[in-house]
Design a protein around this nucleic acid. Structure first.
Lengths: 229, 229
DNA sequence: CCTTTTCGAGAGCAGTGCTCTCACTTGGGA
DNA sequence: TCCCAAGTGAGAGCACTGCTCTCGAAAAGG
């Protein structure tokens, strides 16, 4: 997407595309993904519904675009937070809290990306890079901690199958990180998002709500679990 | 819901209600919650769509009924698995693996209850009891372990706010369980479902898939984290 | 037997995703 | 400079949805 567009038509197209996504995002925040209506978006923009199909061939394409933007928005928030601290434990905390803040500020976009896709659904290739920004941000915290020798010694060995998977991931994304640490990082990663999903879906109602204290506790416990000093 | 119905009309109504839910469940498994159509369900049952509204006043009511059934089905699976073992660690393992097996066998029902949070959505009161069966099953494992003194000594103290919340939960549902253990149990609970959601939504693709090894590892690590012997 | 409740059928309404055709504008090559 | 192809918006239309309403038939109960 070049910053400057050669022709007026290209510029107009980019502007209309952005306007559609913006309006769709506000509709999303208002009525949720389920009730998002292309016709309503077009109506709000003063265009007729069929014109909108020039920009997004079908509703799923619009949703995919919103999903990519959401992944990037969340990923950017996580990366920015990770950049504000230097010591591993503080970086971990900052990253996790930024992720929670983003999720609470954008619950509909959160559920758009972490909600319920159908099992047969294949994520478009365009989404996998944005989707990996958060896990990569968490991996970066651990990788840097390993390099600075600010991580405690790895726990017990893994099973052969998991060891192979973790080693493969390590060579691709986390050079130098011992497999057991990486496995624990994946546990912490899934704990983080499980906890966030529970909070947003109201599973903590009448027990851990408000969830601030529990969230802070869990983040610290998971940091220790991974071994971050 | 009495086992025997006084009048033929009541029996017929119960049968039709069950038939609607059954057909809705198969449609759910086929096309997902998003595309579930009352008209299609009615059509498949050979009735006209307006007749279906005699049984479920609106689509949400049908979905709520399906949600309650799903919670009960999952809860029953968890409770049954917990009953097959005696030692805490084995009970924990069995329960977690039964939950995963249920989730993989009923992915659409899983995403119906754990997917897409709707911020404005208030869970109907009828759902909270079925929804608490799984957490209560996990709490039971820990409670029994405490009673049998098969749990390791509690870790460090909690913050005042979390301590209060945990103590309140303990008095209501987990008498005798130390607050720090309960807090860690909630961490493990959210980890379990975060991991399952990740597996079902394909977030492990190209990394931890197949997730069997990782799941077994995480379940054991979380059992140790909670302190189950 | 007769009244009240329950139920299915059908028509209908407003809304949806999406397609198609028809004009109009724009941009680049001849 | 003209001209044709591509891009774009408007409108009608199709098949579908959730849901409401009315009407007639059947069942339940006094």
């Amino acid at each position: 997407m070049p910053a400057v567009h050669r022709t007026a038509r290209e510029r107009a197209r980019a502007e209309v595309t952005a306007a559609i996504k913006d309006e769709a995002r506000t509709q999303l925040a208002k009525v949720g993904a389920e009730a998002l209506s292309l016709r309503a978006v077009a109506r709000q923009l003063g265009m007729v519904s069929s014109a909108l199909y020039r920009y997004f061939p079908c509703k799923d394409d619009l949703l995919t675009a919103l999903i990519i933007d959401a992944y990037n928005s969340l990923g950017a928030a996580a990366e920015a937070a990770a950049g504000t601290e230097t010591r591993p434990r503080a970086r971990w905390r900052a990253t996790c809290h930024a992720i929670r803040a983003w999720a609470r500020a954008n619950p509909h976009e959160y559920s758009l990306i972490f909600g319920s896709p159908i099992p047969g659904y294949a994520a478009p290739a365009d989404t996998i890079t944005p989707a990996s920004r958060v896990p990569l941000a968490l991996i970066a915290v651990v990788t840097d901690a390993v390099e600075q020798d600010l991580i405690s010694s790895p726990p017990a060995a893994l099973s052969a199958e998991l060891e192979a998977q973790a080693a493969d991931i390590a060579t691709r994304f986390a050079p130098g990180v011992p497999s057991p640490v990486l496995a624990r990082l994946f546990v912490a990663w899934s704990q983080l998002f499980g906890m966030l999903s529970f909070e947003l879906t109201g599973q903590f109602t009448n027990s851990l709500e408000p969830a601030d204290a529990f969230f802070g506790y869990a983040v610290d416990e998971m940091a220790a679990f991974v071994g971050l000093g």
